[in-house]
Design a protein around this nucleic acid. Structure first.
Lengths: 245, 245
DNA sequence: ACTGATTTGTGCGTATGTATC
DNA sequence: TGATACATACGCACAAATCAG
């Protein structure tokens, strides 16, 4: 592919590195380099624009400062993937949350299992430990990128029909609506960071060396009775949680 | 040190592993093993109680489930330190936050510097990029344990006196009060997870292999004008952020 | 970057006690 | 009494992670 280079004007009162910054910034904006893609090496780029590598680096540093690229020593320079703002509010619904941010939400069911409630789950749902819970495991996507792996817990005694409803409706909120639970909201949310288990890394298609953000939350109905205990594992490379008071 | 072992009763109608769970749980509760301390190896403990390692592991799994111990493959088993809940609310003040949770807050000043505002900082404070900001770097402690490393940014033009006030008062909120800013609140907070830089790991006295939780927030006055842009780096081993809607 | 030692994780085979039909 | 199923307990071996040198 032959690429016409934007012309650089020397002695025009605008520093070369600024012109470079503008030029490369525009190329990224136009999509000539795609998010996550590795840029040509500094040497190659400097050669292409016929400037010294130091000049190019000055421009690159500025682009990194602006958040357009990410420079990794020993690896290369990459077009920064836009980070997804995931709002933690009283009424957080996955799809709604993303589409409001201009993203295309997606997702798929991993599996639905029944298991005895572990201590944290039992505490969250307000049921005795060991009582049977229905667990719906999902993967959430934004613009085709996997961003979360969620385990949604429901007390079987109260919401045993959730599995069938989910299979019919295809989403948690729709399934709950089908069961007559229209108005639920998030009580408290705890946020922690840790390294992913092998399974979590696999579900998120991310290396085990990158940390994950985890949110644990309880959804309650109008009478403050627990409906769902959810654990969401977010790929920290793609997501930042936003708390709006 | 000679330690009398609680007696285990075989064929008594109570499974051996349950008796083990009770026994070790009580030893932890009595403080024979202190928070954070490594327990003897499974082999050693199994030997001491004269049971098979599998039996001991069954008991340990139960203790981990109860949150009393933390088992790390290749390292050992440790008495779980109580995790600190750090509330992210509209009026978050470090000391108040911790003492409300029954902790003894502490902290110390790392340094105070002036520097040109980077892009994120400038955007947060609503000032032009490159304008001078005063940065107060602090380390926060709870019960003597380092839990956070904070960089608090203030526009020099507006709050140039913050450095002197902080040195006088010893805390951010007191310094702001001394400058006549009594009533400020948190606008939005962004939370991310990543691996710490070498410097961050040093300030938090934690290994570089453990991730950190980072919160970026803007504090505004009554008229919604930005006062402070703060970046707090939390040791994820010790802190979980709690969002109360 | 490699090695060996330590420690937890996992699998399999066997034996025994307990509850049920 | 016997047959069956399940939980408990033990022994051995190896895998996987961690750490020090």
């Amino acid at each position: 592919m032959t690429m016409t280079q934007p012309l650089l004007h020397r002695r025009a009162g605008i520093a070369l590195w600024r012109q470079l910054e503008q030029a490369i910034g525009r190329m990224i904006a136009r999509g000539e380099f795609k998010p996550g893609q590795q840029l040509p090496t500094e040497q190659a780029l400097a050669g292409r624009f016929a400037v010294n590598r130091h000049t190019l680096r000055r421009a690159m540093a500025e682009l990194e400062e602006r958040g357009l690229v990410r420079i990794e020593q020993g690896r290369g320079t990459f077009v920064q993937e836009p980070v997804i703002d995931y709002k933690l509010g009283k009424r957080t619904r996955f799809s709604e949350n993303l589409s409001r941010g201009g993203r295309t939400p997606g997702g798929r069911l991993v599996r639905i299992v029944e298991e005895p409630a572990r201590a944290v789950v039992a505490r969250g749902l307000g049921i005795p430990r060991g009582a049977t819970v229905v667990v719906i495991e999902t993967i959430g996507e934004a613009d085709g990128q996997r961003i979360s792996y969620g385990r949604h817990h429901f007390a079987k005694q109260r919401l045993g029909g959730i599995a069938a409803a989910y299979r019919q409706e295809g989403s948690i909120s729709a399934a709950l609506r089908a069961l007559g639970i229209d108005n639920y909201s998030r009580r408290s949310t705890r946020v922690i960071a840790r390294m992913p288990t092998a399974e979590e890394a696999r579900h998120l298609a991310q290396p085990r060396s990158r940390p994950v953000l985890i949110s644990e939350s309880v959804n309650v109905d109008e009478r403050e009775r627990p409906i769902e205990f959810g654990i969401a594992v977010f790929a920290s490379d793609w997501v930042q949680l936003v708390v709006e008071p």
